[in-house]
Structure formats: C-alpha cells, structure tokens
Amino acid sequence: MEQQLAGEVEMLRYARQLKLLGEEGQQALKEATVMVAGIGGLGGTAALYLAAAGVGKLILAHEGIIVPPDLNRQILMDHDHLGMERMSTAVAQLKRLNPHVEIEGYNSRIELEAARPWVEQADIVIDARYDFPERYALNRLCVQTGTPMVEAAMYGFEISLTTMIPGETACLECLYPDIQQDWEPLGFPVLGATSGIAGCLAALETVKWITRVGAAYAGVMHRFNTLDFACYSVHVTRNPDCACCNQGR
C-alpha cells in the first residue's frame, strides 16, 4: 500500500530537498524501506540523514550497550545513556528527529537466518558493520534476495564506497574472497568526522538509488583519504569463481 506525503506538514519539512528530488522523488523515499546494518559512527550517521530525508521505514541492527569509546563518533548515542542499550537509544533519537519515519530496531548482530527477514523487507541495504564475518553474512543475504547493498567502510582516515547490485556487479566476496584475519574490529583507529563523511556518502548513495536522481556508484569502488583529500575510483568486476554470487552458475 502506497504511503502518501502527509500534506502541508511533510511538504514544509522537505521543502528544500523537493527542489532537488521533486515530489516524485520524495514520494519514492516515503515508500522505501532501508536496512542499515550497524549504527555506529558510519551507520548511525547514515540512518540520521535517511530519517531526516524522509525514508518511510528504517530497519536497524546493532548489538550491545553504549560505552565511553563510542562517544567520539556515534552521534545517535549520548553521555547520559552510557551503559544502556545502544539500539533503543538510537531509535529514540531518530524518532525525535522525524516522527514520520517507521523504525524497527534490533539489538542483534548480523547472522544469516536472523537477518534474512530484515533484508527481504528492504529495498536497499547499507553495510556499516565493523567486522568481516557480519559483512560476509549480509552480502550473502543480499545476493540470495537480489537486494542492492551500499558497501561503506572506513579505516583511519580512508573511506571506501561502492554499490553492489546482485547479478550485475561484483559482490563483497568477489572483492575480498578470504576472511580478513588481520582485521582488528574492536580497536581500529577512527576519527568521528571521517566516519561521519562515510555515513553521509552512504546515505547520499541510498537516496540516489531510491529516487533515481543521479547515477549509483555501481561497479566502481571509490576511495577517499580525508587527511589530504586525495581520491580515486577503480572499476570492479565479478569473479567468475566467486563462492557467493556465482555459485551454481
């Protein structure tokens, strides 16, 4: 069932972006469901700007409680909620920002069977998880369900971004066929502003995909170093031997 823009209230809220997206684009956002896997510095920023933009439904997944090292970058969290569940705090913050957005929040890691119904509901997924096992699980679910995935990551001062379209572009396992054993998920260096830029780029890519305003960054990996603003893009192709997206072909 289509959700219609709620008259003057929402038209005023989105007045400035309507100049860019048009009413048709804004309506497409209203009708869209986006899953954001991870609501830390990157995913939390993406969720914030998607809620602000008027996405109709957000499905969020991230486990755990708020701890002091979160607070340099996780803008949906705050000092007064230290020790409390991360997800409930994030959902409350987003609802305060935009009560028109429907939000499902799950205090959970990404696991194949648990996350399947969330991915199945989504029109597009943002991968903002901090470890490779969860990223691989999410990638496999997106391939199985045919759901586009914005793959966004950062480490130190560097940001990586691409959009993966099952059956058309490389999937995550095409690019990284082996689990990254040297990844340090609980202690990698991060500056809040860098993860925030990555989250904004992921949100922008998602809005572009939903509204068809501009071209999605599909089949291309963009790298951006926030320390010196150096950037480059490389074309990425499917691996014919990929154990995920080419299995059984």
Rank of each mutant, 00 (worst) to 15 (best):
L82D: 08
Y136E: 04
E113R: 07
R86P: 05
A122C: 08
R140M: 08
A114M: 05
D127K: 01
L141R: 04
L82N: 07
A114L: 07
I110R: 00
M149E: 13
K95Q: 15
S88D: 13
A115S: 11
A115N: 02
M149H: 10
L97W: 10
C142L: 04
E134N: 12
E120N: 10
E85W: 10
V150Q: 02
Q144F: 03
I124N: 03
R129H: 13
A114S: 13
V101F: 02
S108M: 10
K95Y: 10
E134W: 07
L94D: 04
R109F: 14
V143G: 01
L82A: 09
R116S: 08
A115L: 01
I124D: 01
R116C: 03
I124M: 04
A114D: 07
N107S: 14
I124H: 05
F132G: 10
E104I: 15
P99W: 11
L94F: 04
E85P: 15
G146L: 09
M84L: 15
G83H: 07
R129I: 15
V101T: 10
R135W: 00
R140A: 13
P117M: 06
A90F: 05
R116M: 06
L141I: 04
N107L: 03
A122K: 06
R135Q: 03
D131Y: 12
T145I: 13
M149D: 09
M87W: 06
V125Q: 00
V119H: 00
T147G: 08
E111K: 07
A137S: 11
L82W: 04
D127L: 03
Q121W: 06
R96I: 12
Q93N: 15
V143K: 05
M149F: 10
N98F: 06
G146C: 11
E120L: 07
R140E: 12
E104A: 12
L82Y: 08
V143L: 05
T89D: 02
G146E: 04
R86C: 06
I103Q: 09
D123G: 13
V119R: 02
A128I: 09
P133Y: 05
V150W: 01
V91H: 00
P133L: 09
E113Y: 02
R96D: 13
P117G: 07
Y106G: 11
